[in-house]
């Protein structure tokens, strides 16, 4: 029996030396040490049937061999595992395969612009206000010092709904609504949709977004207006932006201004975006016209204020170099997912 054991010892040694994979080692392990039918296991099981004088020595040898083979198996496993790991990473796993992606949802670029602008004005202590999109003519025109039948109404071409109702053509309506219910001081911005029956092209949409701003208090001056809008423009477009305030006309402000910034695309050298002028118009503004204060019952001798309007699409187009306003409303995911 001892001979049988040493035979097994040699066989096992030989088998393990030939083994080339972890799988083969497992098979060898089963062959020798398996609970059912393992060569060593069977020998150990058979010990009780041996003559009593052999039982002890064979038992010892068999167990010693079991230990030994177990150790060899573990060693072989260790060696092969190291080898396999090394060859695995070389053969199997392609590091260049792209990662797996969870879906990522994007907020609409116009929402992002409005959020950015709100954030800036919140830092300047402006409240956020909202007003209705379907309005009475009164709020869109009369209260804003735009008389009926006046050519200036043409600048605000408007969709009408009958019974003196319309789709607001400007967010300035919110100025009036806020002043009607609040006493000065006021500092607010009002983002929202506006509508104009413009022929739709790359630069015009019949629905777009504006942000109206209003500040009213005692002693508010044109230099406050320049200060606030300069901080805004620097914050939004960058510190080295150049600004130009030039006189303009809006019925509800006096004096009125349009504000240009140096074209961010050509750095003021002239390109198609700025019509070769180096400047792009980004804001309309002015000191609130005393007639507007009279309409809402503010003392126009005591209070002064400024108002401004920002075109959201325009700012977004400038920021990203988008050349067609229609992209915002087509909602092509190949567009939206870039923001």
């Amino acid at each position: 029996m001892q001979e049988r054991l040493s035979e097994i010892q040699n066989q096992a040694k030989g088998d393990l030396a030939k083994a080339e994979s972890l799988e083969e080692v497992e098979t060898i392990k089963t062959r020798y040490l398996g609970r059912k039918g393992g060569v060593i296991t069977e020998i150990i099981k058979a010990i009780p049937g041996l003559p009593p004088e052999q039982r002890s020595s064979i038992g010892k040898s068999a167990n010693a061999l079991k230990q030994e083979i177990s150790k060899w198996i573990e060693d072989a496993k260790g060696t092969l595992a190291g080898k396999e790991q090394a060859s695995d990473s070389k053969k199997m796993f392609d590091l260049s395969i792209p990662g797996e992606h969870k879906p990522y949802g994007h907020k609409h670029p116009l929402t992002q612009t409005i959020d950015d602008i709100k954030e800036i004005f919140k830092k300047l202590c402006f409240d956020i206000e909202y007003g209705p999109e379907v309005e009475h003519e009164y709020y869109n025109f009369d209260a804003l010092n735009i008389p009926a039948d006046h050519p200036s109404r043409e600048d605000f071409d408007t969709f009408y709904l009958g019974n003196k109702r319309l789709l607001r053509s400007q967010t300035s309506t919110v100025q009036i609504r806020v002043m009607e219910k609040t006493k000065p001081p006021i500092r607010m911005i009002a983002p929202g949709k506006v509508f104009r029956p413009d022929t739709v092209d790359a630069r015009h949409a019949s629905m777009f977004h504006q942000i109206e701003g209003l500040m009213v208090d005692e002693g508010v001056s044109f230099s406050d207006l320049k200060y606030v809008l300069t901080l805004f423009a620097q914050s939004y477009f960058g510190q080295d932006i150049k600004m130009r305030f030039r006189p303009s006309f809006f019925p509800f402000t006096e004096p009125s201004a349009e504000i240009d910034i140096s074209c961010s695309l050509c750095k003021g050298k002239g390109c198609s975006v700025c019509s070769q002028s180096g400047w792009v118009e980004v804001l309309g503004a002015g000191m609130v016209d005393p007639n507007v204060f009279d309409t809402v019952g503010y003392d126009s001798e005591k209070y002064t204020g400024f108002a401004f309007g920002i075109g959201v699409e325009r700012l977004t187009m400038l920021k990203y170099g988008i050349d067609n306003i229609r992209l915002f409303f087509e909602n092509d995911l190949r567009f939206l997912s870039q923001f």
Partner: peptide
């Protein structure tokens, strides 16, 4: 909007008319 976008939905803006 943060939650819905966070779940992988894209915000759209469509015409009121």
């Amino acid at each position: 909007k943060n939650v819905i976008s966070g779940l992988g939905f894209n915000e759209v803006v469509t015409d009121s008319i």
